[in-house]
Design a protein around this nucleic acid. Structure first.
Length: 487
RNA sequence: GGCGGCGUGGCCGAGUGGUUUAGGCAGGGGCCUGCAAAGCCCCGCACAGCGGUUCGAUUCCGCUCGCCGCCUCCA
C-alpha cells in the first residue's frame, strides 16, 4: 500500500501521486513575522514538518519550501507600536519563530524564502496578470479581477454569487467586484515601498505565496499546505493568480489543510486575543511534550488546547521516557543503538523479530492519511509488551532480553521518526559517578534499615530531577524534567 | 444568509456495517515493594436525539438539537 491522504480540494482521500516519481515538492504558508507565534500556529508547522519527515522515512526525496511574510500592514503597525523599523521587527520575529520551532524540534524547511527578496518576481507576475486582462491598476493599486477567473471558488467550494449574497464582504473604492483583491498596494507616506510600473508600493499578501512557491518548485508542484483558515481567500486567490498566469492547471496537485486549535471551544487567534504563545508552552513543559500533544490527534480536526490536555501529554510522554530508561538499565550493553538512518521505502517488508510487527502497523497507520493517533497507539502497545519483559530481562533470561532488545529498537525507530529524543541520552560521567555514589550511600542506609536517611536521599534527588526506582536488579535512575517556572 | 465540518465512556482522542479490543490520562481493585516509584494484571453496560435502509448500525440515509470554522486580517 502506498501513502494516502486527504486532498482538501477534492475533499476525499487520494493516493500520493507526485509530479516526479520518488520526489515530493511541498510548500507551506509560513508566518507573517510581526508577532510571536501561538501554539495553534505551532501545531500547523509541527504537523507539516512531521509529514515531510514521514515522506522521507518512506524513501521519498522532499523539497520543502516555506515563506516568511515580511512585508505586511501588520508589520508596519507593529513597527510603529514598538517605535522601531519594519526591518527590525521582521528580523526580531523571524528569529523568534526560528527559536520557537527549534524548541519544538521542527526541522527548518529546505528553503525559507522572504517575500522582500522576491519583489521583482512579484512585479513581473502582476504585469503578466494585467497583460492577460485578469488584473487592473487604479491609482497606484492593482487588483485581481475575480470575475475573470472562471473557476474562482473551486478550492473553497463557493461561488461568487454565494459570497456576494453574504453581508460581510466589504467593498473598497476602486474595486470592480467586492471580492477583487489587491496584488499591489500603493505606499502611503513613510511606508516601506518598492518601485513598480504603478508607482511605489508593496505586494499584496496572496501574490507572495504563488510567486515564491512556483519560483522554487515550478508550477504543478505536489503539495501546498497551510491551516484551514487560509483556504479562503488566501489559497483560493493563489490558485486564481498562478493558474491565470501559467495557463495551466493545476497550480498544485494536492492541497492539505490543518485543523485549528481551539481554546475553550473557540478558535485560538491573534485577533481574538485568546492565545497561548508557543514559547509559553515550551517554558512550562519540554518541547517534546508540546510535540506529543500536537501530534497525538489528527492534523485535520480541531484540537483543543488546555492545561489538562498538556498535562495528559506530559504523562504519556513520560511513560515512553520511563520505558526507555528501564530498557537501557535492563539491557545495559545489549541496548540497541539509536538508528542512524531512518528509511523504510519498502515498509516493514523483510523485517523480522518482535519489533517488526509494530513497525508494520505504524507504517500502515501513517500511510493512511497520517493517522498519528493510531501510530501513537502502536507505540503504546509496544511499550506495554516490552515492559513485561523488563523484569525477566533484568534477571538475564535470554529470550526476554532478545525480545526486549528488538522491541526497544523498534521503539526507538518509531519515536525518532516522530521527532522524540527523550532528552540527553548520556549524562556526563561525573554525574553518573555522583549519582552512583549517592545510590550506594542510600543502599547502605537501606541495608541498615535506616529508611529515613534512605528516603531523604531519594527525595533530594527527586527535587534535582533524578527519579530513582528500586528493582530486583538494583536501583535504576533517570533524569526527569524538573518543573520549570513558567512566565 | 451562503459554504464546510463536528457531536464517541470522567477527560483527551482514533476507528469500524456484525464473532474480540483503539490508545492515552484520570479512577477503582490486585500483584510487586521497607515505604515509594515504575511496571504488570483486572474493572467500568461509549458512540447527541429521533426515524429509515439492513438479517444486523456507533459506522449508511433523512430530520432535529447542540457546537465549531470560513465568507474581513488570521496557522
Amino acid at each position: 500500500m502506498s501513502i494516502r491522504f486527504h486532498d482538501s480540494r477534492l475533499r476525499t482521500v487520494v493516493e500520493l501521486d507526485t509530479r516526479d516519481p520518488g520526489r515530493v515538492a511541498m510548500y507551506v504558508c509560513g508566518p507573517t513575522v510581526y508577532n510571536l507565534i501561538h501554539i495553534g500556529n505551532a501545531r500547523t508547522f509541527l504537523w507539516f514538518d512531521f509529514i515531510r519527515q514521514y515522506f522521507e522515512y518512506r524513501g521519498l526525496q522532499v523539497t520543502y519550501v516555506m515563506n516568511y511574510t515580511d512585508v505586511d500592514d501588520r508589520i508596519i503597525e507593529r513597527a510603529k507600536v514598538e517605535g522601531s523599523t519594519t526591518d527590525a521587527v521582521t528580523e526580531k520575529y523571524t528569529r523568534a519563530f526560528e527559536d520557537d520551532m527549534a524548541a519544538l524540534g521542527v526541522t527548518p524547511a529546505d528553503v525559507l524564502s522572504r517575500a522582500t527578496d522576491h519583489i521583482g518576481e512579484m512585479v513581473k507576475a502582476i504585469e503578466g496578470l494585467i497583460e492577460r486582462g485578469v488584473a487592473y491598476a487604479t491609482d497606484g493599486d492593482v487588483f485581481y479581477s475575480v470575475e475573470k477567473f472562471p473557476s474562482y471558488g473551486k478550492l473553497s467550494g463557493r461561488s461568487l454569487e454565494d459570497m456576494r449574497a453574504g453581508d460581510r464582504v466589504n467593498p473598497h473604492e476602486g474595486k470592480k467586484h467586492p471580492l477583487d483583491f489587491a496584488l499591489w498596494k500603493a505606499a502611503k507616506e513613510g511606508e516601506p515601498s518598492w518601485p513598480s510600473p504603478w508607482g511605489p508600493g508593496r505586494p499584496g499578501w496572496h501574490i507572495e505565496c504563488s510567486v515564491m512557491s512556483t519560483t522554487y518548485l515550478g508550477t504543478g508542484f505536489d503539495i501546498h499546505g497551510g491551516a484551514s483558515d487560509l483556504i479562503f481567500p488566501h489559497h483560493e486567490n493563489e490558485i486564481a493568480q498562478a493558474e491565470a498566469l501559467a495557463d495551466t492547471e493545476p497550480f498544485v496537485r494536492h492541497w492539505m489543510h490543518a485543523g485549528l486549535v481551539q481554546m475553550e471551544s473557540v478558535k485560538m487567534s491573534k485577533s481574538l486575543g485568546n492565545v497561548v504563545l508557543a514559547r509559553e508552552v515550551v517554558a512550562a513543559y519540554p518541547g517534546e511534550v508540546a510535540r506529543y500533544w500536537a501530534l497525538t490527534g489528527s492534523y485535520r480536526t480541531q484540537l483543543s488546547f488546555s492545561d489538562e490536555a498538556l498535562a495528559d501529554a506530559a504523562q504519556g510522554y513520560e511513560r515512553w521516557s520511563t520505558f526507555l530508561a528501564a530498557a537501557k538499565h535492563a539491557l545495559g550493553p545489549d541496548m540497541p543503538p539509536a538508528p542512524q538512518h531512518l528509511h523504510r521505502p519498502e515498509g516493514a517488508d523483510g523485517l523480522v523479530g518482535p519489533g517488526a510487527e509494530y513497525i508494520g502497523r505504524f507504517i500502515d497507520a501513517m500511510d493512511d492519511d497520517f493517522n498519528s493517533s493510531e501510530a501513537f497507539a502502536v507505540v503504546h502497545e509496544l511499550v506495554r509488551e516490552a515492559n513485561r519483559r523488563i523484569e525477566p530481562a533484568q534477571r538475564g533470561e535470554t529470550e526476554d532480553r532478545e525480545v526486549l532488545s528488538s522491541l526497544a529498537e523498534a521503539f526507538t525507530e518509531m519515536t525518532t521518526m516522530m521527532g522524540f529524543h527523550f532528552g540527553p541520552t548520556e549524562s556526563p560521567k561525573l554525574v553518573d559517578d555522583l549519582v552512583q555514589y549517592l545510590l550506594e550511600l542510600r543502599d547502605t542506609a537501606r541495608s541498615e534499615k535506616e529508611f529515613e536517611r534512605a528516603d531523604a536521599i531519594r527525595s533530594r534527588l527527586a527535587a534535582m530531577g533524578v527519579a530513582i526506582e528500586d528493582t530486583a536488579a538494583g536501583t535504576r535512575w533517570r533524569i526527569t524534567p524538573v518543573p520549570k517556572e513558567s512566565g
